[in-house]
């Protein structure tokens, strides 16, 4: 009943069956392995899609921190009942933030953002040259591949260790998680940020792993590219959090 109307042919990424009921693909990675292993070589499109996905995916992260922020601000201004006097009291306790240490961490994170960007540009170049350098007999000369990615991972871990030290310092000053609402929020905001950054580090390690497995550089480039944007976002987010807990003390 339905007329199958004019269609355009798709340019196929690789040998594959025609319709839905065709034979299984005969090449490498086996069926249905998904985009990563079996992906199309149209990396430009995949990159654009991944970037779009990242922008969309950052929205809920923003919403989460917006929620925490509004809770923070509201709680800061909120009086609570003291049953002993049966009256409202302001129980907000200014947290004595180890801001020197946090400043050092901030610098580390900002530097890591720079090295991340260098890693991104490096792999972008590599991906652009990949088709040329894969032609037999063509050499692009000695490639200098400074391990920017590795440096970024190390700096990222350094930041996390620095944050951990900051928590130790907070505790030493008597501010534990449940000491007061203000200290709860400081731990909450820094902790949630740390978890998100750790996710970025995992993504970079994943990219490194695919390079060891000699997967095509273009695929790795996509991972590095979106992780880089994510990383920059995390740096911005950190500056925001730092400013918040410092200013709205």
């Amino acid at each position: 009943m339905a007329t199958l109307s004019p269609t355009v042919a798709v340019k196929y990424p690789q040998t594959r069956h025609g319709g839905g009921s065709g034979a299984p693909p005969t090449h490498g990675n086996g069926g249905g392995d998904g985009r990563g292993a079996n992906g199309s070589p149209d990396y430009g499109e995949r990159l654009r899609r991944a970037r779009l996905g990242l922008v969309v995916g950052l929205t809920p992260v923003i919403m989460m921190f917006v929620s925490f922020t509004s809770a923070y601000i509201v709680r800061k201004g909120l009086p609570t009942v003291d049953p002993r006097t049966n009256s409202y009291v302001h129980d907000w306790l200014s947290v004595n933030i180890p801001w020197g240490l946090l400043l050092v961490n901030t610098v580390i994170l900002l530097i890591s953002s720079v090295t991340m960007e260098l890693a991104r540009r490096q792999i972008t170049r590599q991906a652009a040259l990949a088709p040329v350098s894969s032609i037999p007999g063509v050499s692009l000369g000695e490639e200098k591949t400074f391990p920017w990615l590795g440096v970024t991972v190390v700096l990222g871990l350094g930041f996390l260790i620095g944050q951990w030290m900051a928590w130790q310092e907070l505790a030493a000053r008597g501010f534990y998680l449940a000491t007061s609402a203000s200290s709860s929020f400081v731990y909450l905001l820094t902790g949630m940020h740390a978890i998100h950054l750790a996710g970025g580090i995992l993504a970079l390690l994943f990219a490194a792993a695919t390079s060891l497995l000699r997967k095509p550089v273009e695929g790795r480039r996509i991972v590095v590219d979106i992780t880089a944007w994510y990383w920059h976002f995390m740096a911005l987010l950190w500056i925001y959090i730092f400013a918040l807990i410092e200013i709205a003390r």
């Binding site: 069956h17 069926g31 249905g32 199309s40 149209d42």
Partner: peptide
């Protein structure tokens, strides 16, 4: 809109 969409994964087996 992308004019040519590539279906990146093949029909699964098993």
């Amino acid at each position: 809109a992308s004019t040519e969409i590539i279906h990146a994964h093949a029909a699964p087996q098993g």
